[in-house]
Design a protein around this nucleic acid. Structure first.
Length: 120
DNA sequence: ATTCTCACA
DNA sequence: TGTGAGCA
């Protein structure tokens, strides 16, 4: 499929799709016309890219991890052995981020509890 | 009608 | 990351 269908199927803009390619996250082939050609697997990749990006992983890391995730779920392929250590660091980063967010949440709770009307 | 590259109030 | 220009 070309970029137009990718936009419809992933909800991601053309701009971002091309940006992901620049970052090495997607490697669509080209038609003689220069048009990008994406595969069904690319649609799944975009979903993973978005999730990993939302988790705060740098595009460089995502580019390394993507080809190591198999269709069924989150199985690591052999070529990923050297990435385990890096993945552990990212995991810790997320753990620390959650801790900081909870601290912020606590501060907000204090302010909210001190005010008049309140919700959630 | 679509996609491409490049550039920037 | 959006937007628009100028092509193919």
């Amino acid at each position: 499929m070309r970029i137009g269908e990718m936009v419809r199927r992933t909800g991601v803009s053309e701009r971002l799709l091309r940006y992901y390619e620049e970052q090495g996250l997607l490697t669509p082939t080209r038609l003689p016309s220069g048009y990008r050609v994406y595969t069904d697997a690319d649609v799944d990749s975009v979903r993973r890219i978005r999730t990993l990006l939302a988790a705060g992983l740098p595009t460089a890391t995502i580019a390394q991890v993507l080809p190591c995730i198999r269709d069924d779920g989150a199985t690591l392929a052999p070529v990923c052995s050297d990435l385990v250590a890096q993945l552990r660091r990212e995991r810790k980063r997320i753990t620390d981020a959650i801790k900081d967010l909870q601290t912020s949440q606590g501060m907000l709770d204090t302010v909210i509890a001190a005010g008049p009307a309140d919700t959630d």
